[in-house]
Amino acid sequence: MSNLSHGTWVLVADGQKALFLENVTDAEAPNLVIRRVEEQDLPPNREQQSDRPGRMSDPGPGQRSGLAGADWHELDEARFASDMADILYRMAHRGAFGRLVLVAPPKTLGVLRDHLHKEVAQRVVAEIAKDLTNHPGDRLEKVLLTELGAH
């Protein structure tokens, strides 16, 4: 059975946007229909920081070290990937999909994979480590066919 067979769902995500798609045709000529869209509006890091990173005393006479400031984007992107994993779990629990292809940049894919519930992980038939969230539908279908080796 092809990884993109009829009824297979595809999650195309990055750290800020996720498209939940379903293939309503067959693997040879997939037609991905958007079933759900999730977006997170991330303000620039500079707008999320309250002040300069802190400082702490080091053991030793008069020494102080700087503390790294939080990377708010990275934290928000990880939280977003975790939220997508929760949505997938609820959908899987309802029987929305039996097969799932995950498409995300490598870092997001790793975080998403870490948060997937076993019930969802068992349904993952393929992973593609690429950022395809801004591809138009027909282009996305072509890339998926190429990546999944179904010509």
Rank of each mutant, 00 (worst) to 15 (best):
Q63M: 10
Q63R: 14
R64I: 06
S65M: 08
S65L: 08
G66Q: 01
G66W: 00
G66I: 00
L67K: 00
A68G: 01
G69T: 01
G69K: 02
G69L: 01
A70T: 01
A70C: 00
A70E: 01
D71P: 00
W72R: 04
W72S: 04
W72M: 04
W72C: 03
H73R: 07
H73Y: 03
H73T: 01
H73P: 01
H73W: 03
E74Q: 08
E74P: 01
E74L: 07
L75E: 06
L75D: 04
L75Q: 08
E77R: 11
E77V: 02
E77T: 05
A78K: 13
A78I: 10
R79G: 13
R79P: 11
F80I: 10
F80P: 08
F80L: 12
A81S: 12
A81E: 09
S82K: 14
D83G: 13
D83Q: 15
D83C: 10
M84W: 12
A85L: 11
A85E: 09
D86W: 11
I87H: 15
L88Y: 09
L88K: 10
L88I: 10
Y89K: 14
Y89V: 08
Y89A: 14
R90F: 12
M91C: 12
M91H: 13
A92N: 09
A92W: 09
A92C: 11
H93I: 07
H93M: 13
H93G: 11
R94P: 09
R94G: 13
R94T: 14
R94S: 15
R94V: 13
G95A: 13
A96L: 08
A96Q: 13
A96N: 09
A96H: 10
F97T: 07
F97R: 08
G98C: 05
G98W: 06
R99L: 05
L100I: 06
L100R: 04
L100K: 04
V101Y: 04
L102D: 00
L102K: 00
L102E: 00
L102G: 00
V103E: 02
A104F: 02
A104T: 01
A104W: 02
A104E: 02
A104I: 03
A104K: 03
P105I: 07
P105T: 06
P106F: 05
P106Q: 05
K107A: 06
K107E: 04
K107L: 04
T108E: 05
G110L: 04
G110W: 03
V111R: 10
L112F: 04
L112H: 02
L112V: 03
